[in-house]
Design a protein around this nucleic acid. Sequence first.
DNA 1: CCAAAAGTGTTGGAGGTACACCCATGA
DNA 2: TCATGGGTGTACCTCCAACACTTTTGG
Lengths: 251, 251
Amino acid sequence: MLSEVRVTMTRTEAVSRGAGSAPADDVTRVAVSTVIFSLRREPGSDCLSLVLPLVRRTRDPFASRWALPGGWLDTTESLDAAASRTLAETTGLAPSYLEQLYAFGAVDRSPTRVVSIVYWALVREDESRTAAPEHDEENVAWFDAATLPELAFDHNQIVDYALWRLRNKVGYTRIAHGLLPETFTLAELREVYEAILRRKLDPANFRRQVENSGTLIPTDRFRTGSHRPARLYRYNRDIEVAERGPLDAHH
Amino acid sequence: MLSEVRVTMTRTEAVSRGAGSAPADDVTRVAVSTVIFSLRREPGSDCLSLVLPLVRRTRDPFASRWALPGGWLDTTESLDAAASRTLAETTGLAPSYLEQLYAFGAVDRSPTRVVSIVYWALVREDESRTAAPEHDEENVAWFDAATLPELAFDHNQIVDYALWRLRNKVGYTRIAHGLLPETFTLAELREVYEAILRRKLDPANFRRQVENSGTLIPTDRFRTGSHRPARLYRYNRDIEVAERGPLDAHH
DNA sequence: CCAAAAGTGTTGGAGGTACACCCATGA
DNA sequence: TCATGGGTGTACCTCCAACACTTTTGG
């Protein structure tokens, strides 16, 4: 039915950032990348902003460009596991939330045929500080999500899509706690929403909304400091099950 | 900068779903499958039900089981194109709506390592009738989505997820027109919603909701027949752009 | 006491549900 | 004429945005 054909294809060096032997030439390879979001308080301004880690490519194509952390899919691991693994290898992070974003497979997105299964993840602010201890400090850096440079491949587009998903999902799920420590004040939670949605929220209405949603458990502790002490809350982990669809796995 | 090399792509004659020689053992291959929804009016009952086409497998694994239509990803086509192609090859259908669903890649979902990029699609009721003219009538059949047999691989799970997405998406987008002809009455549109959501909707409130959404354009024609003639509507195609995220392609 | 953030109350509008009610046709 | 679905009006309820107001701390 289909006969064997010869194809001439301009091919550059292998794609893998990091190690890996040269791959076979005639197959489409599967890569896994992750858009990792965290929050950082800018020293100058007093508001939080979304940041994400990028790795500098050390080889062609797009050598010296910044790219999403990722790697090749191993034959013996699931997609979710590959996302966690490559994420840990390149940045040393363990995400508090991880979800598949999309599979990108345009033929010209890389010189060789690569299908990228892209995940997106959230890491807590405190965790992202301790990350990348020995992981080439040089080649991993955090960027403000709003002002990214030109990235390798179609990664700018991918980040845009991940941002869109994050902004959507924060509206109808309670994933914001993936960016916060175990306990937090309502003001801190509101700041997270404001950073993601890029607009101010009414503190009074925000309080009632999250209180009525039943996803927060008040503790008896308070955050003291500047003014009137604010109650600390924890997330109710029993809720979030029903929010997701019938996809068993991914944690 | 980029050096040109020659690559020999042994296209193991294969790929399309039925045929196929044994694949290489050490690579993970990429398949593309599609969950295709359409509507069928059951002869006995008077209400619409969701149906989808399945193909009977002719070889192991899961020989003689029913499976989602699909095939191997070709090296020279995008994921979207592969979904359209395999969908046409196996069922002869051209979908009125096509969207990527999810990438499934558990290691044990197939004896050999296969990552399936799954799409879901809608085809209009009338189109689904004329389908599969010469496409092995024997090995393609339509099933009620609610009462599927045990399918090959993890395809039952996949259909469940596709149904979940469809039911969600019908609530906040206007994809239902993908199951209807060019013009239709509000009652017909409501029936589509009822079939997808599996519950009755108030005709009066349904009318106002879709009218206020601005997605319908009334024509000056009417569907006559049983009782008082019902006005025919068309969909306003200018709207649906803003509904989707920043994913350029897939039409 | 004052500033500022924590937390509460109140109002009005938007949108959804339930349901009563007219309208127009085939039989 | 009647039965049936097409189409309209309306009351009510819930949720949300706006904003006035009280409470509690640090300085």
